[in-house]
Amino acid sequence: MAAADRLRPVVDTALDGTGLVLEDVSVTPAGKRRVVRVLLDRDLPAGDEDVTTATEPLSLDEVADATRTVEQALDASDALGEQPYTLEVSSPGVGRPLTEARHFRRNVGRLVTVHRESGELTGRLVAAGPERVLLEVPATKKVPARTETVPLREVDRAVVQVEFARPDPPKES
């Protein structure tokens, strides 16, 4: 069994009740040590309804608290053996592909490029549910602006686009 597979249940158990969920864990040799990388994200409530509001990113304090929790759990277990390790805990970056419905739900409000058999589509993710996503696609020279529904089963690949001048959220009156 790979080291990451042994660590996953230890980290999952440590995170119970914290409001965080384990996205990924990896172990990489680094000389006489190992680097244990743990990616966490906010746990979203289960449900079949579409999410239409942005999820708050993890704060530095939340990551620091999670790091202490994970470190204590790893030190108390024998999953890593006696070899020393360096622990790195963070949240997934924008370069990480969107592969599951929960990834889309966490990125509502962001600009997303979806690759599917019928072509590439870039638009603002305005809603995401367990089976589909809604994108607001801006107008081009030949096609007017539109809202397009994309079933998740049709998505081959999707990524969040980095925006340096992200539009402000609409102001409530």
Rank of each mutant, 00 (worst) to 15 (best):
M1T: 10
A2I: 02
A2K: 04
A3K: 09
A3L: 15
A4D: 14
D5K: 05
R6D: 05
V10N: 13
V10Y: 12
V11F: 08
V11S: 06
D12V: 09
D12S: 12
D12Q: 15
A14L: 11
L15Y: 05
L15R: 06
L15H: 05
L15A: 07
G17V: 09
G19S: 15
G19D: 15
V21M: 11
L22W: 08
L22E: 05
E23M: 03
E23K: 08
E23G: 08
D24Q: 11
V25P: 02
S26I: 00
T28E: 14
T28I: 09
P29C: 12
A30P: 03
K32Y: 05
K32V: 10
R33T: 13
R34F: 08
R34M: 10
R34G: 03
R34C: 03
R34T: 09
V35Y: 00
R37M: 00
R37V: 00
R42T: 12
R42I: 07
L44Q: 03
G47K: 10
D48G: 05
E49L: 09
D50M: 13
V51M: 09
T52M: 06
T53G: 07
L60W: 07
E62V: 06
A64N: 13
D65C: 02
D65A: 12
D65Y: 01
D65M: 03
R68L: 10
R68Q: 15
R68E: 14
R68A: 13
V70T: 11
V70F: 12
A73K: 11
L74Q: 07
A76D: 15
A76F: 08
S77G: 12
S77M: 10
D78I: 03
D78N: 10
D78Y: 06
A79N: 06
A79H: 05
G81I: 11
Q83C: 03
Y85K: 04
T86D: 14
L87N: 04
V89L: 03
S90M: 08
V94Y: 00
R96K: 15
P97M: 07
P97V: 04
T99Y: 07
H103R: 07
F104T: 01
F104R: 07
R106E: 02
N107A: 04
V108S: 01
G109A: 13
G109D: 11
G109P: 06
L111D: 04
V112E: 00
T113M: 12
V114A: 11
H115T: 08
H115I: 04
R116D: 08
G119N: 09
G119F: 09
G119S: 10
E120T: 13
E120S: 14
L121H: 03
T122V: 06
R124S: 05
L125R: 06
L125V: 06
V126G: 01
V126C: 06
V126P: 00
G129I: 01
G129C: 07
R132G: 03
V133L: 14
L135R: 01
L135N: 01
L135A: 01
E136Q: 14
P138I: 02
P138G: 14
A139Q: 01
A139F: 02
T140W: 02
K141S: 14
P144Q: 04
T147N: 10
E148S: 02
T149L: 01
T149H: 01
T149D: 05
P151E: 13
P151S: 14
E154A: 15
V155S: 00
A158H: 00
A158I: 02
Q161Y: 04
V162S: 00
E163R: 09
F164S: 11
A165N: 15
A165G: 09
R166T: 12
R166V: 11
P170N: 10
E172K: 15
E172V: 06
